[in-house]
Deep mutational scan, measured.
Amino acid sequence: MPEGSASLQLAVGDRVVYPNQGVCRVSAIDVKEVAGQKLTFVTMRREEDGAVVMVPEGKVLAIGVRKVASAE
């Protein structure tokens, strides 16, 4: 991610809310080559049905992904 860009610090195992998809758990953060460029992807699995969603790390905030609020 370019320096100075806002990002959401995620780790494998974090629970997040993905708008219009529901609650997901981060299952992987991997670098993949797409069209000759190396990009970091956040892979999330929906808790409702296990569907897998992959989002480029740089788009996580723009999409509206946020961490699940704690009970505290």
Rank of each mutant, 00 (worst) to 15 (best):
L8M: 11
P2T: 11
K32A: 07
L8R: 09
V53A: 03
L39F: 09
E48L: 13
D30N: 10
L8Q: 09
G58R: 09
A6C: 04
A35T: 04
E47A: 03
Y18G: 06
R15T: 09
K38F: 12
Q21F: 15
T40E: 02
L10C: 00
P56F: 09
Y18D: 03
F41R: 02
E72D: 13
G64F: 07
P19Q: 06
L61F: 06
V17N: 07
L61W: 07
V16N: 00
V23W: 06
V34N: 04
V42I: 15
A71F: 10
G13D: 03
R45C: 03
R25G: 02
P2D: 11
V60G: 06
G36V: 01
A35P: 02
R15V: 13
L10E: 01
Y18T: 05
V23D: 02
I63N: 10
V26Y: 00
A71W: 08
A6Y: 09
I63H: 11
V34Y: 07
V55G: 03
R46H: 06
I29T: 01
R45K: 11
Q9L: 09
E48V: 13
V17H: 13
P19M: 07
R66L: 13
F41S: 02
S70E: 14
V16M: 03
V16T: 01
G4P: 12
A28W: 05
T40R: 14
G13A: 01
E72F: 08
G13S: 01
R15H: 06
I63M: 12
T43M: 06
E3Q: 11
P2N: 12
L61N: 14
G36Y: 02
S27R: 04
Q21H: 15
F41C: 02
P56L: 12
I63D: 15
I63G: 09
V68H: 07
S27F: 13
M54T: 14
L61R: 14
K67E: 06
V17K: 04
L61G: 13
V17E: 09
P2K: 11
A51L: 11
G4K: 12
G58D: 15
V34A: 04
V52Y: 13
C24R: 00
A51P: 02
L61S: 14
E72P: 11
T40D: 01
K38Q: 08
G13W: 01
I29W: 01
E48F: 13
Q21N: 11
E47D: 05
V60D: 05
K67C: 09
V31D: 04
V52D: 05
D30C: 06
E57G: 13
T43R: 04
N20A: 08
L10A: 01
A51D: 05
A28Q: 07
D30K: 07
V65K: 04
R25Y: 13
R25M: 12
K67V: 14
I29F: 06
